[in-house]
Simulated scan of single mutants.
Amino acid sequence: MKKCLLSFFYATLLLLNSCAKKKCCDFPVYKDFILADKNGAAWNIPPSNSAIKQDTFIVSGSNIIAGTEERFGFKIRFDGLGYYELKSNEAYYTFVKNNLTVSSYKLSLTQGSTIAVFGANEKDKIIQGFFELHFTRMTGAGGPGQPDSIRFLNGKFKVRLQN
């Protein structure tokens, strides 16, 4: 009798757990991010001031490293999901210290830079995708950590756009 009741109890628990409502469609919400492999090393920068202006998305971020502000950004004239080849004035990467530009980079003319937008939620103003950007130094003396060229490979981003 004891074995029969114990078996009945386990069968009831199994049945109740199998019939419970599952949260199969609850997706995790990730914070906004911009990350990539910068010249072969893991890199990330907190998104800030990302915006939408008319038909253009601007994705940007900044970070303070040892008293120097690192600024990064790109813009695309958005006309739907897909790949975008960037022109010379559509991305930037700079280092600023005490409100003075230490080094400034522009997109390389010899290597292509692309953005792939795979998600755009117009209601919540969220855009996400991948990027590969190649920069060459325009100004600045360089120095430690500031080479003549910088490449961002395997880049990923998800940002909420402001008006």
Results as ranks from 00 to 15, higher is better:
residue 35 L to C: 14
residue 36 A to C: 02
residue 36 A to H: 04
residue 36 A to F: 04
residue 36 A to G: 01
residue 37 D to E: 14
residue 37 D to Q: 15
residue 39 N to S: 00
residue 39 N to F: 00
residue 40 G to K: 07
residue 40 G to E: 05
residue 40 G to I: 05
residue 41 A to R: 13
residue 43 W to L: 08
residue 43 W to K: 10
residue 44 N to T: 11
residue 44 N to F: 13
residue 44 N to M: 08
residue 45 I to F: 08
residue 46 P to S: 06
residue 46 P to L: 10
residue 47 P to D: 09
residue 48 S to W: 08
residue 49 N to Y: 15
residue 49 N to H: 15
residue 49 N to C: 14
residue 50 S to D: 13
residue 51 A to C: 05
residue 51 A to N: 08
residue 52 I to Y: 06
residue 52 I to M: 11
residue 55 D to M: 10
residue 55 D to V: 11
residue 57 F to Y: 03
residue 57 F to V: 01
residue 57 F to P: 07
residue 58 I to V: 07
residue 58 I to F: 15
residue 58 I to R: 07
residue 59 V to G: 02
residue 59 V to Q: 02
residue 60 S to L: 02
residue 60 S to G: 02
residue 62 S to K: 13
residue 62 S to Q: 12
residue 62 S to Y: 14
residue 63 N to C: 09
residue 63 N to G: 03
residue 63 N to Q: 13
residue 63 N to D: 10
residue 65 I to Y: 09
residue 65 I to S: 05
residue 66 A to L: 15
residue 67 G to M: 12
residue 67 G to E: 03
residue 68 T to C: 04
residue 68 T to F: 11
residue 68 T to I: 12
residue 69 E to I: 13
residue 69 E to S: 15
residue 71 R to D: 08
residue 72 F to G: 08
residue 72 F to I: 14
residue 72 F to C: 07
residue 73 G to H: 08
residue 73 G to K: 12
residue 74 F to E: 11
residue 74 F to H: 02
residue 77 R to Q: 13
residue 78 F to C: 03
residue 78 F to W: 09
residue 79 D to W: 11
residue 79 D to S: 07
residue 79 D to V: 05
residue 80 G to C: 03
residue 81 L to M: 10
residue 82 G to Q: 00
residue 85 E to C: 10
residue 85 E to L: 12
residue 86 L to I: 04
residue 87 K to R: 07
residue 87 K to M: 09
residue 87 K to H: 12
residue 88 S to W: 06
residue 88 S to Q: 06
residue 88 S to E: 10
residue 88 S to V: 06
residue 89 N to R: 13
residue 91 A to L: 01
residue 92 Y to Q: 02
residue 93 Y to R: 09
residue 94 T to Q: 06
residue 95 F to Y: 15
residue 95 F to V: 04
residue 98 N to M: 04
residue 100 L to T: 12
residue 101 T to K: 05
residue 102 V to I: 10
residue 104 S to F: 03
residue 104 S to I: 01
residue 105 Y to P: 00
residue 107 L to S: 04
residue 107 L to H: 14
residue 109 L to Q: 13
residue 110 T to I: 12
residue 111 Q to A: 05
residue 113 S to N: 04
residue 115 I to T: 00
residue 115 I to M: 00
residue 116 A to Q: 10
residue 116 A to M: 07
residue 116 A to R: 06
residue 116 A to N: 09
residue 117 V to W: 00
residue 118 F to S: 08
residue 119 G to I: 07
residue 119 G to H: 09
residue 119 G to T: 06
residue 120 A to R: 08
